[in-house]
Write a protein that binds this DNA or RNA. Structure first.
Lengths: 163, 163
DNA sequence: TTAGGTGCAAACGGTTTGCAATCGA
DNA sequence: TCGATTGCAAACCGTTTGCACCTAA
């Protein structure tokens, strides 16, 4: 799984290189670093998270530069932005666009992916019915993850009261 | 339709009153005004939009108070917050929670509702499969609305070039 | 050589907070 | 009366921008 994730990240990195080259945009040290940080699996990183990771690796990239590199990544379609209600955005590497949705725990904020295979046919159809040309979609479910539910149950058992 | 919308708004307003009373929270002039402004049909208002509407009606409510009233409305479950990528949030009156999704035009930002009836059974199931307790969900489709598509086509016809 | 990128610091804009005055129940 | 709310202004914080300097091609 880790090897797979690394390979996927590497593939995205190369696709980004190609995308830059195709439009004669300079390939800079900073763009390499930021894209690698975003493509490195494990989590959807925030701007601050990208900078933290790079700092840990001994690299220094200015905040504005991170934002500008992310703009390019978004434009290339290799990355998608999310607002999970934390007050900042997180960026998701997009191996295959729009193949999954997100389960978001209302209590702890943990985000889990789920397959949206069952919806992939339906959503473009819905767009069509409303005279929209479908480009992308996003499916989110909010609820309580197992851990938070268990924690709640424990609290209830002890105090006999919810709030 | 307008009469219906007004009736719906009135019902939400009364539900909010009851919700406040039930938890012994003061019913203030400001809470009445803000909730009515949000519940008034037609559009999903932003904080600034709420204030503008109230100002037009000759009322003055502080910004912080609008935010605090909206927090209560969200907590009551009668209102849902959206981030359509405009840099601020919009607030949607929730007559019946989670019965529709949103089509968002990638070009002009127009938001259209669509029925999510076809998904209502499926999504709680998906949550269950991932050990989540389903609370709510949100389905969004991004694409081009009819008008923007036509405008694009016209431009292409004239200039013969896309960007 | 040079168009474009970078980093800094200041500006921005939506949202939150501290606090004295005020209000609903 | 009294705890909660309000409004103002300042603080916050993620993001954007202006500009002098640097760098990929």
């Amino acid at each position: 799984m880790t090897a797979e994730a690394a390979a996927a990240g590497e593939q995205l990195f190369e696709r980004f290189h190609r995308w830059l080259r195709d439009r004669h945009l300079p390939i800079t040290r900073q763009r390499d670093l930021v894209s690698r940080a975003v493509f490195a699996g494990g989590e959807y990183r925030s701007v601050e998270g990208v900078q933290r990771r790079l700092r840990e690796q001994g690299h220094r990239v200015g905040t504005a530069t991170v934002y500008r590199a992310l703009d390019l990544l978004l434009e290339s379609g290799l990355v998608r932005a999310h607002d999970f209600g934390e007050g900042f955005k997180r960026f998701e590497p997009l191996l295959s666009p729009g193949r999954h949705g997100h389960l978001i725990c209302a209590r702890c904020g943990r985000v889990t992916e789920f397959s949206t295979e069952r919806f992939e046919r339906l959503l473009p159809l819905v767009a069509d019915e409303h005279d929209f040309q479908h480009q992308a979609h996003q499916v989110e479910i909010r609820g309580l993850c197992r851990l938070c539910r268990d924690a709640d149950a424990a609290t209830l058992g002890r105090a006999g009261r919810s709030t």
